[in-house]
Design a protein around this nucleic acid. Structure first.
Length: 830
RNA sequence: GCCGCGGUGGCGGAACUGGUUUACGCGUACGACUCAAAAUCGUAUAGGAGAAAUCCUGUGUGGGUUCGAGUCCCACCCGCGGCACCA
């Protein structure tokens, strides 16, 4: 290399920091604030190339916005509490706190080599008491407003991590972190009432400038189902069995009911059940099954008929049997379903297995006039093999025959509603957010239990409840938090009655900590409020948020919930935290696998930074492909970027030593000027759209052209450096100063290239006077002619037909048609 | 099974609203410079036929629409991501 990247990078990083060039508001007058945010890293130890892929191109975007005149803040911090820290600490036999802060120091150092515009004075670390004081404060606000509550709920328990997990943290019935099979346990836990916001969370999505895919995934995760709850009378009893369905239009095809094994009907009507022995066997068996076993038995559709009980179908008074089967889940809907085997695959499988009748009530085509009362039970031969769950027209449905299924949903529902046998209902897949963790390394839950007063919140002025440094932080066998062993922590006085009381020993899920960190960055050292109202109004919501797609349903949903709750409590005046969102792709190992320590395919950026410099690594990451795609890390192309940067350096050096001769009017100068203007436009548009790879390729074209030209103007070089500045901040700063563009002896914030504005372009210059007209004969390219761009169809025709090439192909055949696309092509069809 | 995304040279990838397929970069080959090497610069680089001009075939597969399809429509194959007994 012609220059030493390490030397100049260190030099400029030091000077930028000395002069604080990024923490000062830039262009105060403009007053256009732009909050640019990248998802803060987990303090896992080492930064890998995937982190850089998140942060470096994002920094290009932030720098570009800054040069466009926005007052950009781009903060950085660490997500520091949580299970992995603790598991790793246990493995390495050091305290989680020591381990975490050691990692943070290392990661901060690594991050600084990138040369990003992070304002380190805003750094937040979620495990600092000055931060978690406000996490606890948030908990108290939620608690006081009924959004945090305690309940004895069945939860996912990881026997290896010895803690409960949120539904979102269970993947394939395994613990997200350690991969151990989770167990179902009923424990008293703290939950956040995220379900109060289901509709808000759903409706808010519409206005967001987010990837459609992410919105759809959140929508599916919330899983809103609108339908009807229907009451089925149990014969010879006062009991009515309620079921929830989205397909009330299929009710005439309901041939039996099924209840979940946990359904209360067994207690209530035990005396009427004639086969209670086999039923209790079944209930016992399904209780013992893990969720995993239940899932692995999908398709088997086991179940037993509850003999002695029959239900009445409210539409036709048919007597239908009732079954218990564990394919029906207690926690969704009413824990009981109406089975329509013809139009639901699960019911179909069950009916086939247990030999139950199948009646077709929805036919894809309109085949039955409403006057025809009786059709064969099965019209469609396909129903021999599988259920039809689409829309269609009703048959076998008495007076509703011939009606569209969509209409019938409304009509049958309302008809039963008038008889008080059905009511409209909505269910969601989303369940409340379980935040208790029986682990040490987390934010303590600020609650106290008093024998007399019950659960009492810690008074706000006593916050934070400091996490004590204890020696034995390993989880206990019985699944109690390690904090329970610390008597000094546990024993306290009740804030209400001043009697003896005990602290909550569970800690919060780390996702609670990260659900509001973007608010703290704005005012990180404030110890009176989580952030001042004025600063919140100035900066929030976040304009652009960049991070991995793996956070689609966890972090992004929780953050939206926090924002909505804080908005309701009047602490903030916006309802969505992140207006813009972009997911970068995932960088994989060379083996095409996700990078992970256990696979040994983790790549550190450090070696590449040492060898080629941060500018080259930043740019190479931008160049390898579309930002949202990612792919295997293959460093073989990085030399191309190095050569490019070298070329830029050489180019600037040669221009510097040459005197500025008059070149204004030469043809070369005009062409260069045209290219320059085009490049300004293209690079700007591309960065705005996160198309960094094509932005770089047109910068390369520009540099190639400038390098061919012997007499370059200073102003052209100036523009080039400005366009390149977001990508290669160090080299461009070095060359900017070398060229003396700022004309100041001492380096000051104002004369940094990073405090200049993005160059403007003149679109008028793009107009080409001459173009290459493509000549097609029968749709195949046969010729190219240089013509005036304004050439008319007639002239183009004449010109083309006079040429030998055209005549060679057309010969004497009759020309049938001529298509002329101005400034592009002419196609002659014979 | 359902939803979403993708499939273009040896490789990473370009291609606007249907209009020159393969920009830019890597790699490779040859040449220049050099005692030599590296670096650098120059030329070539989808496949096939040909001495050449040139021609034919090519964007996962098969069909269709069109003067013209990587791009639009239908069917299918493969890869990736998400959800998955949610009534």
């Amino acid at each position: 290399m012609n220059y030493n990247p390490q030397k100049i990078e260190k030099k400029w990083q030091r000077r930028w920091e000395e002069k604080n060039i990024y923490s000062r508001p830039f262009r105060r007058k403009e007053k256009k604030n732009f909050y640019h945010l990248v998802m803060f890293p987990y303090s896992s130890g080492d930064l890998h190339i995937g982190h850089w892929y998140n942060f470096a191109p994002a920094d290009v975007y932030a720098r570009f916005k800054r040069m466009k005149g926005f007052n950009v803040i781009s903060p950085m911090g660490f997500d520091a509490f949580g299970l992995p820290a603790e598991n790793a600490a246990i493995k390495h036999r050091i305290h989680p706190k020591t381990w975490t802060y050691k990692n943070i120091n290392r990661m901060r150092k690594q991050l600084k080599t990138m040369g990003a515009i992070y304002d380190w004075s805003r750094e937040v670390i979620t495990s600092d008491p000055s931060y978690y004081k406000w996490t606890q404060w948030m908990f108290l606000q939620l608690y006081k407003n009924g959004l945090a509550y305690r309940a004895n709920v069945p939860c996912n328990f990881c026997p290896s991590c010895k803690t409960v997990l949120a539904n979102e943290q269970v993947i394939d019935n395994k613990c997200e972190r350690c991969g151990t099979e989770v167990e179902q346990k009923k424990i008293e836990q703290w939950l956040f009432k995220i379900t109060d916001y289901t509709d808000d969370l759903l409706n808010g999505l519409k206005k967001l400038d987010w990837p459609e895919k992410t919105k759809t995934m959140q929508k599916n995760w919330i899983g809103k189902s609108e339908g009807w709850t229907i009451k089925f009378q149990i014969l010879n009893s006062k009991f009515q069995l309620e079921v929830f369905t989205t397909r009330i239009d299929t009710l005439f095809g309901c041939t039996y009911l099924v209840v979940a094994p946990e359904h209360p009907i067994f207690k209530k009507l035990k005396s009427k059940i004639s086969n209670i022995g086999p039923i209790e066997d079944y209930l016992e068996k399904s209780k013992k099954k893990t969720d995993r076993e239940r899932i692995s038995e999908i398709g088997q559709k086991t179940g037993v008929q509850i003999k002695g009980l029959m239900a009445l179908n409210p539409v036709n008074q048919e007597k239908i049997p009732i079954f218990v089967a564990d394919y029906v889940l207690i926690h969704y809907g009413k824990g009981a379903i109406m089975a329509v085997p013809a139009h639901d695959q699960r019911d179909f499988d069950f009916a086939k297995k247990h030999n139950l009748s199948i009646i077709e009530v929805i036919h894809p085509k309109s085949i039955v006039k409403s006057s025809v009362k009786k059709a064969p039970l099965l019209v469609s031969s396909e129903l021999e093999h599988s259920a039809y769950d689409g829309e269609g027209f009703l048959i076998n449905s008495d007076r509703f025959n011939g009606m569209r299924s969509l209409d019938a949903r409304k009509r049958i529902g309302e008809w039963l509603e008038r008889q008080n046998k059905a009511k409209k209902d909505v269910y969601y897949r989303l369940r409340d957010w379980l935040i208790s963790r029986q682990r040490y390394w987390g934010c303590p839950i600020p609650m106290i239990y008093c024998q007399k007063c019950g659960w009492v919140p810690v008074p706000e002025k006593e916050l934070p409840v400091v996490l004590p440094r204890i020696k034995n932080f390993k989880p206990t066998k019985e699944g109690r938090s390690p904090l329970a062993n610390s008597k000094t922590f546990v024993n306290t006085t009740c804030p209400k009655c001043k009697g003896p009381a005990k602290r909550e020993t569970d800690t919060m899920d780390t996702f609670v900590c990260s659900s509001w960190y973007y608010l703290r960055y704005i005012d990180p050292r404030n110890d009176k409020q989580f952030a001042s109202k004025k600063k919140i109004d100035d900066w929030l919501p976040v304009n652009m948020y960049i991070g991995g797609a793996e956070h689609t349903v966890l972090h992004l949903l929780y953050s939206r919930f926090f924002t909505k709750a804080l908005n309701d409590l009047k602490y903030i005046n916006f309802k969505e935290p992140f207006l813009g969102l972009y997911h970068q792709g995932t960088i994989l190992g060379l083996d095409g696998q996700k990078m992970s320590k256990s696979k040994g395919n983790v790549v550190s950026p450090d070696l590449f930074v040492q060898k080629y410099g941060a500018d080259a690594v930043r740019m190479y990451l931008c160049f390898i492909g579309p930002y949202d795609r990612g792919g295997p890390w293959n460093p073989s192309g990085i030399l191309g970027i190095c050569r490019f940067l070298d070329k830029v350096y050489t180019l600037v050096e040669t221009v510097k030593t040459k005197s500025q001769e008059e070149t204004e009017n030469s043809q070369d100068a005009k062409e260069i000027n045209k290219l320059l203007n085009k490049t300004i436009q293209k690079v700007g548009d591309d960065i705005e759209n996160f198309q960094f790879n094509t932005a770089i390729s047109c910068l390369m074209i520009l540099v190639n052209e400038l390098s061919k030209n012997v007499r370059n103007k200073y102003s052209d070089i100036q523009t080039l450096l400005l366009l390149l500045a977001p990508f290669a901040p160090h080299l461009t700063e070095e060359l900017w100063q070398k060229m003396g563009f700022s004309n100041l002896k001492d380096f000051k914030s104002a004369n940094s290239i990073h405090n200049q504005l993005w160059p403007k372009y003149n679109p008028k210059l793009f107009k080409q006077s001459k173009i290459q007209l493509i000549v097609q004969i029968n749709g195949k390219v046969r010729d190219r002619i240089e013509v005036k761009s304004s050439i008319s169809k007639q002239d183009a025709e004449k010109l083309v037909l006079s040429r030998d090439i055209a005549n060679k192909w057309i010969k004497n055949r009759e020309v049938k048609k001529i298509i002329f696309i101005p400034k592009k092509l002419i196609n002659i069809v014979y």
